[in-house]
Each structure stands twice: as structure tokens, then as C-alpha cells.
Amino acid sequence: MNNDSKLNRRSFLGAAGAGLLALTGGLAGCTKRTDNAKTGKSPLDPRFTYDVSQFAHTDPAQLLYQETASIPTGFEDPKCIAVGPNNTLFIGGDRGVKCFDPNGRLQSAITLADKPIALAATGTRICVALKDHLEIFAENGRQLARSEPLGAKTYLTGVADSGQAIFLADAGRREIIHCDANGKLLNRFGHHGDGNPGFVVPSPYFHVLLGDDGLLWVNNPGRHQIEAYTADGRFELGWGAPSMAVEGFCGCCNPVYFTRRPDGKFVTSEKGLNRIKIYDAKGNFEGVVAGPEHLVKDLDLAKKACANCQIGFGFDVACDSAGRVLALDPAAKTVRIFAPKIA
């Protein structure tokens, strides 16, 4: 290789030296390269990152409730919650409905052919809305009635039962279905026009509730409103406004769930910034049951932990006679109970 034998040693040393240098240099370079992902910080300018963290904190002065207990549902995919007049708790999920006593002990269970999406419990019977039809059960689990399939585009997400009439919220067709006591379809209403604002339902969160005032209360998430209708489908009033701030409904389509306390005040539940809040009967903001920081630690994690939450991650809410708020946590698969703070 070389024509000078003296070069052997020198090239040997050179080879070894340069080789070692290169090896250590290479290894140092390899381990030095820090992973952007590891630091957990985006290298982007803040104007390229979406940030609503300033809205994710609740003013303690506005917090009216505290979490007191939770009940495991035993469902893989809990979906809906309702409380009967005697504080019996009904939870729908997977392919069934479970009935718990007020202390959280499992009483009975109903098996369904499909997934329950909404529940209404009157004390004498349970109405279960499945995707395209309604099933009515007695409290002991015996099936009383079952409606016809309500159409291909129908996607039921809410049910209310007065005993004489049943109202269904059809998110697929963006309308309310009025049925008789046995689930026979009487009428559909709520379309845009004739004084009706029309329902805007971008995602399947659309609910109905019968108030003691005789009005049918409906959430209109795309308009960020809670609206009242007469039983024959006439729009009466609506309240609510979009805002990331705590007084309004955040995001593009909220509230996703709502209920009323025995005193007539509204309990609303939002997705995106998960928060459960209290509004008075006229729609004035009163306070917070639980803010985003109380409900979910990490929204992405929670969404993935919930098999059915690729669109929206919201807590269905119900109220018992003591005014406690029961929120169904689809990630933890539990019912979380919030009781009013004692002043």
C-alpha cells in the first residue's frame, strides 16, 4: 500500500486516532440531537398554536358545587343518564340500561339489542331512545312498548316523557318528534321558518326536556341556545350566547347536555371546554358546578379513553331531588356526583 515502511506506524496511529475521533463524535452527535417531541413544546411561534387555556380555569368565587362521590357504571361505553323521581339512577351504555339505587347499588339491568343513546325516567316507566326507534320499559325491566323505526336519516339523541306524550329529539333530521304515550308517531316539528329558528345540530348532541312550566325545552347547540317550545311545536323563547368565557356557551356547538334542578334552574354541560354550569330559569348565569380543570385532566386522553368520543366529549347530566348534579364521565366510565357547597 505504501512505498515507505515508516508510514505504516503513522498511518496506523492516524487511522486509530481519526477512527476513534469519528466514532465518539458520531455517537455524541447521535445522543445530542434532542427530540423536539421530548421537550413537549412546539417549536412554532405561539400564533401558530391553538390555545384556550386562559378559559380553562374557574374562578373559585363562581364555583357553587364540589365533587362528593362517584359510582362506577360498569359500562365500557356509558352514554346517557337519567334520575327518576325517587332518585333512582338509570344509566344507559353498551347494550343495556342499568338501574342503581340512590346509594349507588346496582338494582336491575335491561338488555337491549343496540346502544341506548338517551333515557327518560318518570317513576313508572323508562323510555330508551335507540338510534332510530324508541323502547319503553317498566321499572322492573319488562318491555311495555316499542316504536316503529323512524326513518333512515333519523338519529335520536334525546327523549322526554310526560306520561301522556313522548318527545324525541332527532339530531339526524334536526327536528322534534312528538309521539303518543305508546311511542306512536304523531307529529314532527322544529324546522326553520314560521317563527322557528330551526335546529342547528352539527354533532349528535340534541336533547329535549319537559319542564314543570308545561314547555318543551330543547338545546339548539349550533345556535348556542336553550329554547322552549309548546307541545304543538310553536317556538316560545330561547336564551344563551356563544362565548369562551364562563358566562356563555363555548366552541361551535354547545351546550351538549342540559337538565333542570328541582328549583327550576338549568344545569348545562359543554364539550370542548368541559364545564357544567348553573343558569337561572330565565337563562342568567349563576355559577359553575365543575370547570374543565375539575372534569378532565387531559382532553385528548379522555377522548381516546372513550370509545365513542371522536366527535365531542361531553358529560351527560341529571339532577336528583336534593339538587345534586350527577355527571356521566365517559372516560372514567363513572357517574360523578357534585353536591352544592355549604356556604
Binding site: L13, A15, A16, G17, G19
Partner: peptide, 19 residues
């Protein structure tokens, strides 16, 4: 390039290949 350095540096590709 000086012969000794040339021979030394010529070993780097072998290590790089290995890595």
C-alpha cells in the same frame, strides 16, 4: 491529503456503514 490522515479518514465510512 497526508497519507496517514488519508488512511485514517478512510476508515470512517466503514464505521458509518456499521452504525
Amino acid at each position: 491529503v497526508p497519507v496517514w490522515l488519508e488512511h485514517g479518514l478512510r476508515l470512517i465510512p466503514y464505521m458509518y456503514l456499521g452504525l
